[in-house]
């Protein structure tokens, strides 16, 4: 009997292919192939409608040509600063809010949660313009507010000043996205069993000590995930800068990040015409940066963060 069955070939399970096919096809055709197409395109250039292989020439231009390399390093540094602001401001605030929200028997916590998450759902266009208006010296909402607390003298048109614009935009972006770390940390805090917290209460570990010694170590994996999500999101950002400052990422490119740099290169602006090949080279660099970040996270950080089974 057993032998008979063993000889029979297992029928091909077509339904597995049917279930997988639509997702895999769309995903491969619209995402993966173009992604590698872009990487490939960065090795080409064109003259008189003729495309030809140039090897790493585009990258040589990007790093060798002083104009290109200046723009690239400017965008990369700005992007890094943008990321640093998020890590230093957005994530600690998010964790703090989540810690407050998760205090037991806190009233109105659903209201706070809902309200603080609202900026996250708004589009960059709304956020960019709303803040542009509020910070505008023409309208005067911001100076008025500062006046209320007696700090009117501090006001400057932050978005218009080279030295402040990027930091201001970073903080606007923090304002918009603080809801995401808040929610994820909140969820992580809720998943700590009540009894563990009660055991800590019995041990006399309460208040801040409880947060540092018990809760924080238990939510470290979530903080790791948030960091990498922030990294990918920041090095892929474009919309907010574009909405608030336009494709030129003014004033004087002081808010230029990789996303806007890519857009300008690809589509051209003012006198320069669009260059898909240099655009691909920049996209490839972004790909490389993000991939490196993700790999560092996956292979060094995540393996050290323990996930605890309760």
């Amino acid at each position: 009997m057993a032998g008979e069955f063993a000889q029979q070939k297992k029928p091909i399970r077509w339904h597995i292919a049917v279930f997988l096919a639509p997702a895999v096809l769309v995903y491969t055709a619209v995402m993966i192939i173009p992604l590698f197409g872009t990487l490939q395109l960065s090795l080409f250039n064109a003259e008189n409608q003729q495309r030809f292989f140039v090897g790493l020439d585009n990258f040589r231009k990007l790093f060798g040509d002083p104009r290109w390399s200046a723009s690239f390093w400017n965008a990369l540094w700005n992007n890094t600063w943008f990321f640093i602001i998020h890590m230093l401001v957005q994530n600690p605030i998010g964790i703090g809010l989540a810690a407050l929200l998760s205090s037991p028997k806190l009233r109105f916590s659903a209201f706070y949660r809902t309200a603080i998450f609202i900026p996250t759902i708004l589009s960059f266009v709304i956020v960019g313009f709303a803040w542009k208006l509020i910070l505008s010296p023409l309208w005067g909402v911001a100076p008025n507010l500062l006046d209320l607390v007696g700090l009117k003298s501090l006001f400057t048109p932050w978005l218009g000043k080279e030295e402040y614009a990027l930091t201001t935009l970073g903080l606007i972006s923090v304002w918009q996205f603080v809801g995401i770390p808040m929610m994820l940390i909140y969820a992580a805090l809720l998943s700590i069993p009540d009894e563990v917290i009660e055991a800590a209460e019995m041990d006399g570990i309460t208040g801040m000590a409880q947060f540092w010694k018990i809760k924080l170590p238990l939510i470290l994996p979530s903080i790791g995930i948030i960091s990498i999500l922030t990294f990918v999101g920041n090095f892929n950002a474009f919309d907010l800068i574009y909405s608030a400052q336009g494709a030129l990422a003014g004033p004087n490119y002081s808010t230029d990040i990789l996303g806007t740099f890519l857009y300008r290169t690809f589509f051209g602006f003012q006198l320069q015409t669009g260059d898909p090949y240099m655009g691909s080279a920049i996209a490839s660099m972004m790909f490389l940066i993000i991939l490196t970040g993700v790999c560092i996270y996956l292979f060094t950080i995540q393996t050290r963060l323990r996930r605890y089974q309760f």
Binding site: E195, A200, M202, I205, K213, I214
Partner: peptide
């Protein structure tokens, strides 16, 4: 609770998962 001079053993043990057995016992 911590000042009542009591100790409690929970149904689900409620051990601190990130600490060793020694640290679990000595934290309080």
């Amino acid at each position: 609770p911590a000042n009542r001079g009591i100790a409690m053993v929970f149904q689900t043990y409620a051990l601190y998962p990130h600490l060793t057995v020694r640290s679990n016992m000595s934290l309080g």
